[in-house]
Design a protein around this nucleic acid. Structure first.
Lengths: 339, 339
DNA sequence: CTGTTAGCGCTTTCAG
DNA sequence: CTGAAAGCGCTAACAG
């Protein structure tokens, strides 16, 4: 049985507006009345209907969080940070996994708009015309968890990301600095935007050091441990084996190391492996992965902040935030053996 | 600019009810009218207001997902499974992290009810009277992601879990079967309900084998890698060191192994380590953890199923589902050296 | 300080 | 097949 302010009003022989005022801590209510209302509200187990309220106030106090996959440690930390901050401000978060499926993405985004959502934090893939159109036409504040692309520059959105290209580039540069010139690349699917940017960083560092790109050394296999194994195997099957491997994320690197060690390659003596992400496990003794640290918590927290800013200030200027990464040098990388 | 059915009605000189019917694929509308409505709806970028609809239909098509911490791999997989299935059925999921804080738990739960939520999947801690009361009084379908306790038996809720006690017990039994009698225990905080149940399993297996419990061997330190290190250190500081360690989760086990190897203990030759959870990384060569496999995906999926059942059938009988676990024997455990 | 009234955007009778 | 009217639960002027 669900009670409404009407029930309280009838019970106390008051008007519903007085009840509403009392419940909302409005000043224009006598202490006595307020107390009576609050008491009977409790007794009757009254629960406000937030939807009805939103209908009038035009605020739902809900925000949407669209990400590719919540089981990805990167996104789960972002999701924690976002929810943490936002719930403190009285917002609830509707979350959805797109799994990089454009259709799911569109559907989820649309449903969010239909919910009268107050803001959206999202990690979209490549936006098709439909999505571009929806984003352009809504005035719901939006924060992208990735770079804003060329064709999206006109959108009124904020964004937060680290410089994927520069971060990947510096990782590869580190390998080159150690003397490596045959550097393998193990990446995720081509669909992911960060994948492209990281690959660009790889290419740029090769180019800056006059190393020719060898497509035999580039393998896009997927994003988890098992794919790291596959990637390593493909690379080591070459006649001219690489002396170092750069992977697009730590799980790939860990998988690669696992395969290498299982096949009697020593890491880093025979081959260096460089990760990207700095997961907690990457610091373990047995793994001790050289990698790039990504400030996941900071990204989640600041994404929420950015959104709150946009929600507060009617037409705040969209911000484009770039956070810093840094190289974490451990013992999965070393000079090449023939150096 | 957000359009309503009113706008469409005015534009087409129709009544809002006709527009509503057309939009909702109601039979009682001429093909011609429906087409006109659908077209102008698209043109005007009309978006239904789902909140307004819920007000009438009493269905919000939202469900709540309350868990302790989304970055916990166990819960992130559950969260993925839940969202996946539910989004297919047209539901959206509001998620929140309680971080085992009773206050957050209560607040989040309450906000869910105020949203006219259609159902809730939750992993609560110990329920205080407030929570018990709220759950008792609502008729929102609820699924617990843990065992239903004594004092909760009367609640109309479904639940899904594996048998924590039996699973932990079988893990410890495996150690005993190998000849271990001094078995350390590294656990999370006492607050967590699963922690209690797993500890009980440990005790039961000791008892069943006439092994006296030694409180020096029991350490509750926390739930992640760093805590595993701490736990291992505390155990090995004993004069009479254990020959095996059982941990409440894989990350603890991984941390323990890390500390042990860093301090020149061989695993499993000098000391065995048993995990609990079977994370993806636990299968890695360098880790190769003996552990208990928990069917996370299945739990998420079936939790969503249970909830859907309750939502569909008005007063379905609550179900209590117990899923199976199984021991995964790898190479972090062996006979004790003095055996 | 309190009540009356209107209306948020939508669905749903009930007439025609 | 279409329209008028009522109302979901609530807030927000506007009177008094």
């Amino acid at each position: 049985m669900v009670r409404t302010i009407k029930d309280i009003a009838r019970e106390l022989d008051l008007s519903i507006s007085t009840v509403s005022r009392a419940l909302n801590n409005n000043a224009d209510v006598s202490e006595k009345t307020r107390k009576r209302v609050l008491e009977t509200a409790k007794e009757m187990r009254y629960q406000p209907n937030v939807n009805a309220r939103s209908l009038i106030t035009k605020k739902s106090n809900m925000i949407g969080l669209m990400l590719s996959d919540i089981t990805d440690p990167f996104f789960s930390e972002v999701a924690l940070g976002v929810e943490n901050l936002l719930s403190k401000e009285g917002y609830q978060v509707i979350y959805g996994n797109t799994l990089l499926d454009a259709e799911k993405e569109r559907r989820f985004f649309k449903s969010l708009l239909e919910r009268n959502i107050d803001g959206i934090i999202m990690k979209p893939g490549k936006l098709d015309d439909d999505m571009l159109d929806m984003i352009e036409c809504t005035d719901v504040p939006i924060v992208f968890l990735r770079d804003v692309l060329e064709e999206e520059q006109h959108l009124q959105i904020s964004s937060i990301d680290f410089d994927q290209t520069a971060a990947a580039g510096s990782a590869v540069q580190h390998l080159i600095d150690q003397g490596h010139r045959r550097i393998g690349y193990v990446g995720m699917s081509k669909q992911a935007s960060e994948s492209k940017a990281r690959y660009r960083g790889y290419l740029e560092s090769l180019h800056a050091n006059d190393i020719a790109m060898n497509s035999q050394y580039v393998h896009r296999v997927g994003g988890s441990i098992v794919h790291g194994r596959i990637g390593a195997e493909k690379l080591m099957k070459q006649t001219k084996q690489p002396t170092a491997i750069f992977t697009e994320n730590d799980l790939l690197a860990i998988g690669a190391i696992d395969w290498l060690r299982a096949h009697a390659y020593r890491v880093p003596e025979d081959i260096s492996v460089m990760g990207f992400e700095n997961l907690e496990i990457s610091g373990l003794h047995q793994i001790s992965l050289t990698t790039v640290h990504l400030p996941r918590k900071e990204i989640g927290y600041r994404a929420a902040k950015l959104l709150l800013n946009m929600i507060m200030a009617a037409n705040a200027i969209p911000e484009r935030v770039v956070v810093k990464t840094n190289l974490v040098i451990r013992s999965s990388t070393a000079k090449p053996c023939d150096y």
